[in-house]
Amino acid sequence: MPDLLRTFLRNRKAAIGLAIVLAYVVVALVAPLIAPFDPIARVGRPHQAPSAEHWLGTTRMGRDVFSQLIWGTRTSLMVGIVAGLIVTAIGTAIGITAAYFGGLVDNVLNFFTNVVLVLPQLPLLLVLAAFLGQVGPWAIALIIGLTSWAWGARVTRAQAMSLKTRDFIQASAMIGEPTWRMILVEMLPNLLSIIGFNFIGSVIFTIITEATLEFLGLGSPLALSWGTMLYNAQTASAIMVGAWWEVLAPCAAIVLIGVGLSLMNFGVDEIANPRMRTLGNVAKALRIEKRLLRQRMQEANQ
């Protein structure tokens, strides 16, 4: 595990992405300590522009946007991580089980996965959220987690099917290793890269989807998140009255966390994919060669 972490941190994209995500995690953990105001208290004039007192201005109700952004980080990250864990757990379990047992088990699980996979994702979420009424963050995380695992299951199954034919797996089966050990000890550790890829991608999808649902008014107005901030800005016609900061703050937060998670995803892909790693090494060698050539030309001109 320490070697894996060192390899991950040596990748520039992964290291930058991890730094961004960890900054969000720290903000979420210490939100009560760094938020200057109560996020739901009236602390200024309506639609007050950014100033030294209110760094990101105020809302139509006179609430501090910066404080809401900090507390919203906690909610949005919680939804993303919880739903990501649910998606990854279900997808990994179904994918490995289908690949390892094969036959009828594989056919049934693969059919079930295909059914979920062809369902239109966003319309399904909209229907479920509308049917349940205005739901809280935990319910949104559960809805997304239980309806978004199919792609991860398909990818994990394909990777596990390839892994199943490896010599060390065949040797373990021949010496009579129990099923649980074959799955948990022999196969699962070799799928960590694809599992991490699925988890990070699920967190990105969840944060954006949660913001979309809440922006459309399907979330609980009592929950404070980036999506409800956008919903409140829309109902207050913030752009129409020139209060652009109410929209910019949550949008920038969503974009930045998306960039951080995407960089981590690219890093994981480069580390786990030998072809991507080779291309990266070739590109690095070409950059070094160009730099050396430029230095030689400068020395020749002198």
Results as ranks from 00 to 15, higher is better:
I239A: 14
I207C: 06
I271A: 01
T212C: 11
R181N: 11
A252R: 03
F197T: 15
R291V: 01
F215R: 06
E289R: 14
S193H: 03
A233R: 10
V268D: 05
L188E: 11
V268E: 02
N281C: 02
M187T: 05
W244I: 13
L188I: 13
G176I: 13
N273S: 09
A243T: 07
Y231K: 10
M187Y: 00
L222Q: 14
T212V: 09
W226L: 03
M187R: 01
G176Y: 08
T206N: 06
S193G: 15
I254P: 00
T228W: 01
A243M: 08
G258P: 02
I208Y: 07
L230D: 02
G280A: 10
N281T: 11
S202E: 05
L222S: 07
A211I: 04
G260R: 10
I257S: 04
G219P: 10
T278D: 14
G217Y: 04
L248V: 15
Y231M: 08
I239H: 06
T209Q: 08
N190P: 08
L230K: 11
A285Q: 14
N273L: 04
N232R: 12
M264C: 13
F197V: 15
E289M: 10
M276G: 02
S225L: 11
L256P: 03
A253I: 06
G242I: 10
R277S: 13
V282R: 12
V241G: 03
L230M: 12
S220I: 03
R181T: 10
P250Q: 04
T235Y: 04
Y231L: 09
L279D: 07
F199M: 15
L184Q: 08
M229I: 06
L279C: 05
T206V: 12
L192K: 09
L224D: 00
S262K: 09
V247C: 10
I271K: 08
L248Y: 11
M187E: 13
L224W: 00
G227H: 01
I271T: 03
M187K: 11
G201Y: 12
A211N: 09
G267D: 08
M229V: 07
G217I: 04
P250V: 03
E186D: 15
G260S: 09
I208V: 14
V241M: 01
I288S: 03
G227K: 04
L279M: 15
G242H: 00
